[in-house]
Design a protein around this nucleic acid. Structure first.
Lengths: 136, 136
DNA sequence: TTATGTGCAAAGAGTTTGCCAGCTA
DNA sequence: TAGCTGGCAAACTCTTTGCACATAA
């Protein structure tokens, strides 16, 4: 069956090539935050006709139509996740690079308020907590 | 007179070359968040013997001894500012790239608490608000 | 003097793109 | 079939580095 992302592609009117279908499926099935290289490896395992240039182009395309989100966790390469309706922030475990998603209502309100108090309207934001597991 | 950053370099025991002195001075006199290219241009205007490789090396050195802070505002290149004792976050005006610094006590506490509730100890964090000026 | 620092140009990593063949609608 | 899409390799941007020379301490 088509992946959730593949359906979204069709909804957006994208021409569905085999490559895009595979990449969409890979992203839909990834619950981590893969970088381009990783998406390429996973896609290429399914269909070796996929080149890394296509993965780059497709990620940008998917980002432009808002079906994936691009993140930058400070390691010099872009990382992606399937867009979801619910906003969340990220906590990065610096010991192993693992990414934990979280949402905090009070935090969201505070961010909006701070921007407003400074005379701005927030259009986007980024919050990342870099942390280590509590021992014990 | 030596710049604040130059004094800090000496305190840290760094060998003070003319290049480092100039770069330290440029950074001390910058109240924006210049990228390497900009630091290079400003330094080179003062002393044309400075190469961009030295600026890269010096920024990394200054970062390692904690006298400058490196930021990534999502435009693909590193931006720097002189370290200060007081932590602050950044609001980026997306209309012109201007960076506004701010500090919010409640926000700081909330960040620490969120990490703790997730079972982590926060070691670093990054918060950037991307915003547009309120009209009126 | 001697360990370090610097300039230059070449090398790297991640990402983008021109061109032509290939495939979707 | 018309036009968008993908593969390949070259090009680009930002950053790092090897080597020979220069310099601070």
């Amino acid at each position: 069956m088509p992946s959730r992302l593949e359906k979204l592609c069709v909804d957006k009117g994208l021409k569905m090539t085999e490559q895009r279908r595979v990449i969409a499926r890979v992203l839909s099935e990834s619950d981590d935050h893969p970088d381009v290289e990783t998406v390429y490896e996973r896609s290429n395992k399914i269909d070796s006709r996929i080149s890394i240039a296509t993965v780059y182009r497709t990620m940008r395309l998917f980002e432009e139509v808002d079906i994936v989100e691009k993140h930058d966790f400070g390691d010099g390469r872009a990382r992606y996740e399937e867009s979801s309706d619910d906003h969340h922030d990220h906590l990065i475990n610096v010991e192993n690079g693992e990414v934990i998603e979280f949402y905090d209502e009070a935090l969201e309100k505070l961010k909006t308020k701070i921007a407003k108090d400074l005379g701005y309207k927030m259009v986007d934001h980024r919050l990342e907590l870099y942390a280590v597991p509590l021992k014990g």
